[in-house]
Design a protein around this nucleic acid. Structure first.
Lengths: 146, 146
DNA sequence: GCTTAACTTGCAAACGATTTGCATTTTTGT
DNA sequence: ACAAAAATGCAAATCGTTTGCAAGTTAAGC
């Protein structure tokens, strides 16, 4: 989604391009990982924006397909900008919490199999991975606690 | 996990096999779809069990690997018994909410690719699908609202 | 079976993320 | 610039989930 298009996209859905909206969108497009509403709120630098407004805008952006909501088994949801031609999943380190993108998506390959098995028409899916990042790999020379 | 084993499994983790625990486990193993804490609570028929106890037990069972927590983009989490040799995902109908199992898991096939791409050691993943079930398929002969 | 320590429960209160009501301000289309 | 529509700040409300604590239940050894 080119920056210019967001205004049109919003207009098509009878939504205004407000200062808060633009700033939130900018923050999301700049971030390399999905952010929580609170993180986004803390990154807002311009005029004061209420946290409730952040929530309202995230929902609005999600509803019109500009933003994706992600559940990484935390107490809150994370949000990320949906960029054109980009199908991304995530992997989070169970030790340090680091979050990385996974561009490899097998779900598309198995879509037919899933549709055949379930009889459903597949519209969307969530795929989040959890593991241990390179920096947190246990050393083989030293015992690790559980 | 055979019904008999649950007691041992609990004991190994210094947990008691209480009446509430047994009943919750039974409800979960009988259900063909993951249940919310509230649904489980409402299905408890024996002596009175507090909702807080249901939550505490679901967490305990999850912590020792007997139960899996599932996020289907609802306001709450769902829980299901982890049965031996069963790797299951789910697909939920975006129209009627019906939930079915998907035994086809491609993630295992792509595990190597994901590990290679991210450098992470893959430990776990969430894969939930959303679509439209057979009964809710739009009819081609009649227009459908959005 | 009895006893005690450990674990669990009910109850009510607390929490934390998210939502909402409403009066006011900003944005939009003309 | 204007009126109508949409968005915002603020505070209060929601709602799923968690927690403190006193009382009840279960486990393990005798």
């Amino acid at each position: 989604m080119a920056a210019m298009d967001i205004a049109n996209h919003l207009r098509r859905h009878k939504k205004s391009l407000t200062r808060a909206r633009a700033e939130i969108w900018h923050i999301l497009t700049q971030s390399e990982k999905p952010l929580s509403p609170d993180e986004i709120h803390r990154r807002l630098t311009g005029h004061k924006v209420d946290l409730a407004t952040v929530y309202r805008n995230l929902r609005a952006l999600k509803d019109i397909g500009l933003v994706r909501e992600i559940d990484l088994r935390e107490a809150f949801k994370r949000y990320e900008a949906i960029l054109p031609g980009q199908h991304v999943h995530h992997i989070m380190c169970q030790v340090c919490g680091r979050i990385e993108k996974v561009r490899h998506c097998v779900v598309q390959n198995m879509a037919n199999a899933i549709q055949k098995e379930s009889g459903f028409t597949l519209k969307d899916h969530s795929l989040e991975c959890f593991g241990i990042c390179p920096s947190c790999q246990p050393h083989k020379t030293k015992a690790q606690g559980t």
